[in-house]
């Protein structure tokens, strides 16, 4: 399988103080790093999942990949083209090849447009005049499993699951190579979650697209993803094959996330749970040494002051920790 997307040492920063404020308050570096030193590869036809808590930089990373945020450092290559140095017309062409399924399914649809015009909007924006928009709309609605008479409806007349499907139809309209799905099941009932995930899996198989899924719901990761990365404070702490990560989590944070994942079995109660102390530190004030040491149940003196080395295990499991778990 060839590489579709390749990111090397990406860093995305946000300014926290204006230049004048920074000068007056004598702050040398008025930025926070939302994404720091992130490297990843997504292969053709693969589903890559990004897991992390709120504020860990998941969405920032996705926006940078889509060219909606500028990278401060590092490289984003899509089909061997460098995204970070594209001109605006190149970006336009690039955006045909990637598409987004937004987290807020109803909010991402214009309230003033009918479903039919919403899902064919992309053709107009990219000036594809040879298409019969009505036929395209019908084809897309069928692909995502919606009745074609839904075309006349407006966003507020859709249920959460339907709106999500319209979002999927919009995303596949221009035959993209990569679909970025930000929390595709957020706000959906359990019985509908399955439907959306089945749809994504099916489209992936039928259309051969790659998926980049962002979620904090570990329960769905296992079923849709080939490879997974766990993000904490803007860095990847662990990355590898999804099966390996679930079977043998090696970073303490991954282990804690997995054990905090509540299952509908009353017997599996708090007994063996690893409870993390405290909360995620602020990006303005990153801890020294290993950035997870303030909450890590296994941290030792070493972790306070020395940045952990990067370990690589068999089958591409990569992690950053002084004392990886499950060594054997």
């Amino acid at each position: 399988m060839s590489k579709l997307l390749s990111i090397k040492n990406l860093r995305v920063r946000f300014r926290t103080k204006s230049p004048l404020q920074a000068m007056l308050q004598k702050i040398d570096d008025p930025y926070i790093d939302a994404v720091r030193q992130v490297s990843l590869d997504i292969k053709q036809g693969e589903t890559f999942t990004l897991v992390g808590e709120s504020g860990s930089g998941k969405s920032t990373l996705a926006l940078a990949v889509a060219g909606l945020l500028n990278a401060a450092e590092g490289q984003i290559k899509f089909m061997n083209e460098d995204v970070t140095s594209m001109t605006s017309s190149q970006i336009m062409a690039y955006r045909k090849k990637i598409s987004f399924i937004w987290q807020n399914s109803i909010g991402s649809l214009s309230p003033r447009m009918s479903v039919g015009s919403l899902i064919t909007e992309g053709y107009k924006i990219h000036n594809l005049k040879d298409r019969d928009l009505k036929m395209e709309a019908d084809r897309l609605l069928k692909l995502v499993g919606l009745p074609t008479n839904i075309k006349e409806r407006y966003a507020h007349e859709l249920s959460g699951g339907q709106a999500r499907r319209v979002g999927v139809a919009r995303a596949i309209a221009l035959d993209p190579k990569l679909i970025i799905a930000d929390e595709p099941t957020a706000g959906l009932d359990v019985s509908v979650q399955g439907e959306i995930l089945n749809l994504l899996n099916k489209l992936k198989d039928d259309l051969g697209v790659s998926l980049f899924v962002i979620t904090h719901n570990l329960n769905i990761v296992r079923h849709i993803s080939d490879r997974t990365a766990v993000m904490y404070l803007g860095r990847f702490v662990e990355q590898g094959q999804t099966d390996d990560i679930f079977a043998k989590p090696r970073h303490p944070y991954t282990l804690a996330l997995l054990s905090a994942n509540l299952t509908p079995y009353p017997e599996a109660s708090l007994k063996n749970r690893i409870e993390l102390k405290g909360e995620v530190p602020s990006l303005m004030n990153r801890p020294n040494g290993c950035e997870f040491h303030t909450r890590c149940p296994f941290s030792s003196k070493h972790c306070d002051n020395e940045f952990p080395p990067i370990h690589t295990f068999d089958r591409e499991q990569i992690l950053t920790c002084h004392y990886p778990l499950n060594k054997n």
Partner: peptide, 23 residues
């Protein structure tokens, strides 16, 4: 059905998840 289709209750990797059809 509700318990069956909760992705959390399916510990084995599954491409096709159960759902409750209808509304």
């Amino acid at each position: 059905k509700l318990l069956e289709c909760d992705p959390a209750s399916i510990s084995k990797k599954q491409r096709l998840l159960p759902t409750i059809p209808g509304e």
